[in-house]
């Protein structure tokens, strides 16, 4: 089955449990994590998670809302975006 791949980006101050909270949310919704990376960019903690939402229990709008709510609760910016955007912007 063809995958539907998106990037989740988390930007802000490092703190304990970020990966656990986001991967928990993915697991709860049947979303597979394909890859994960983290580091410090321009002084910010940045985590990127590459996920496949093909079998997600909920539509993207709900996942996006839940991530935004989680981001608000823990004081981080969380963004979810389809991979085609990155392919278009960063590959000629």
């Amino acid at each position: 089955m063809e995958k539907e791949l998106l990037f989740i980006t988390v930007i802000g101050e490092d703190q304990k449990g970020i990966v656990a909270k986001i991967s928990g949310l993915m697991f709860d919704n049947c979303i597979n994590i394909e890859d994960i990376d983290m580091g410090v960019k321009e002084g910010y903690f940045v985590m990127t998670m590459f996920v496949d939402i093909k079998e997600s229990k909920k539509p993207l709008a709900d996942i996006s809302d839940e991530l935004k709510k989680l981001g608000k609760d823990i004081g981080l910016n969380i963004q979810i975006q389809h991979e085609n955007l990155f392919k278009m912007m960063h590959r000629v």
Binding site: F7, I11, K41, T48, Q81, E83, L85, M89
Partner: peptide, 18 residues
């Protein structure tokens, strides 16, 4: 992952911060 973390961060920060 064919897209690097730097590239993802660049795009996300364009929207979130710029």
């Amino acid at each position: 992952m064919t897209i690097t973390t730097d590239e993802v961060y660049e795009t996300a920060s364009m929207i979130l911060q710029q």
